[in-house]
């Protein structure tokens, strides 16, 4: 099984050696190999080509391949480091590495900033914040009047934009997050510490191979 993994996996476009990925991320080699099981499952759910397409990502997140969501789109775009419209295995592991419980908090804060910087200007602007609040309301059952939305956005913006220049920069974001640490809760996935238990099949087979 271990041999099958290594021979087949090497033929997959964008495949990278687990030892290389483990060296660059908080994951161990075994964990990278377990992540390959998860990657295989997601990347073969619609088109079995060893790449995660947007619809496959949506299917994995929402159990619905057609469910569009601004935030899922942003996560997909940030995972797609090469910006070629698909997530390769190496991109998947490197990006999930940020969500590892042992990843540096600075990386998590920076990732969230890029997530919310919708137009890639290097700042989170008021319009972007309002657009995200409206997107959240759209996906949920919450109904808030435009006045209330304006009030929430205004209040938050004034709180975060401490320099008062009408935009939130990375320094202000870091300071804001330190005051509201719950904002970083989504940026840590405890599952990643137990990934070899969740997807043990390769680890078991690789141990057999190692002992031979």
């Amino acid at each position: 099984m271990g041999c099958l993994y290594s021979k087949n996996a090497r033929n997959v476009p964008g495949y990278e050696e687990p030892t290389v990925l483990a060296a660059e991320t908080p994951f161990t080699v075994d964990e990278v190999q377990a992540l390959y099981e998860l990657f295989k499952k997601i990347s073969s759910s619609i088109i079995d080509d060893g790449l995660i397409h947007k619809e496959e990502f949506q299917l994995a997140l929402f159990r619905n391949r057609n469910r569009r969501n601004l935030f899922a789109d942003r996560v997909f775009d940030l995972f797609d480091l090469k910006r070629n419209g698909v997530i390769e295995f190496g991109e998947f592991v490197r990006s999930l590495g940020v969500f590892h419980p042992n990843a540096p908090m600075a990386d998590k804060i920076a990732f969230a900033f890029r997530l919310y910087d919708l137009r890639h200007t290097g700042y989170i602007e008021r319009e972007e914040l309002k657009e995200m609040v409206l997107a959240l309301l759209h996906e949920s059952d919450l109904v808030l009047s435009d006045d209330v939305v304006e009030m929430i956005v205004d209040k938050t913006f004034k709180d975060a934009d401490t320099k008062g220049d009408g935009r939130i920069d990375q320094e202000e974001w870091k300071e804001f997050v330190s005051r509201y640490p719950s904002l970083m809760k989504n940026m840590t996935l405890p599952y990643l510490k137990d990934i070899t238990l969740a997807f043990p099949s390769f680890v078991l087979s690789s141990e057999v191979e190692d002992s031979e």
């Binding site: 997140l61 935030f71 929430i152 956005v153």
Partner: peptide, 26 residues
Amino acid sequence: TTPLTMNAFELISTSQGLNLSSLFEK
């Protein structure tokens, strides 16, 4: 906590699109 007491980013962070733990559900 109700939406009115949450700041805009707290509200946004409740999005299902940001909850990647569902990737690990079988």
